[in-house]
Nucleic acid binder design. Structure first.
Lengths: 147, 147
DNA sequence: ATAGGTACTTGATTCAATCAAGCATCTATC
DNA sequence: GATAGATGCTTGATTGAATCAAGTACCTAT
């Protein structure tokens, strides 16, 4: 289990609430992944494979080195969760797709990762809107949301 | 850089906002740590050392194996950021304390990690309260906040 | 006095992440 | 059309986090 990020002594109540929320989110994600024999990185990669996508493209999206992707994909492929197929037009490139196994497993993972769903479900429609608005406002300019 | 956790296709707008927020938070934390030559785990451990604390205690707080702490502390100690002193009453135990170096570096790290501060600063006092309340309400029962 | 528990360490293993170097292929330019 | 440089991916090496099993030293309760 990864160690909880974030300051122990948050200055304000709101900061503390953010930290607790982020920590809970991260832990829930990791727990759900482990329940299905996936690491965080593996679950994350598997989740991106909704469309055919190249290694390079994936590395760029995740903001990491291409060689990192190579090894993560190799492990997923060894478990028949993912397959590499040649790119039709560019023979350097490999298109990655989930196998039926991979799709099934990822669906099960998402089912386990009820955190966000469950969190939202505790709020009224109006509160959900408020929360989304506040989070976006708090985020805006602090760091760009994931592209 | 760690890979972004979270679903790419969040079902609702609120879920999407949560994911973006958590992702931004985690990335900001890691970036700030790296700026000071710390890993995420190292920054986290260093941040917990506001009081004298034993290895076991630290491992329990972080929810990881004691041997994990041993090696993280060893690396911090090698950089003179942390020191291990014998427990006055229990000779099995080691009390960990930050060195002046460690305290200085951690302060610099917290200065760099402006994410939470900056996020809060974008909201009015009333909005801050609202956000904290909504986050806690969304969290409640989903997963216990960090003890 | 000793049996069992506790605190920490060591060694082994797995995985993530990064870097440097290499191969195959593509593309722009001459 | 040849070729120089860029691009896509892989390999190998290294570092660090995390977990597990096993071991040592020490404490505690009987």
């Amino acid at each position: 289990m990864a160690v909880p990020t974030g300051p122990v002594t948050a200055s304000t109540d709101a900061e503390r609430a953010m930290f607790d929320f982020v920590d809970a989110y991260d832990r829930a994600y990791e727990t759900a992944a482990l329940e299905h024999g996936l690491s965080v990185a593996q679950a994350c990669v598997l989740g991106r494979l909704t469309r055919q996508i190249g290694m390079r493209e994936l590395a760029d999206e995740l903001g990491c080195d291409a060689s990192n992707i190579t090894q993560i994909i190799r492990r997923l492929e060894a478990r028949d969760l993912v397959r590499r197929r040649p790119h039709p037009d560019d023979r350097r490139s490999r298109q990655i797709v989930r196998t039926p196994n991979g799709t099934t497993l990822y669906a099960a993972f998402e089912e386990s990762f009820e955190f966000a769903r469950s969190a939202v479900a505790k709020l009224s429609a109006r509160e959900q809107d408020q929360l989304a608005t506040l989070l976006r406002k708090a985020l805006n300019g602090t760091r760009e949301p994931n592209s």
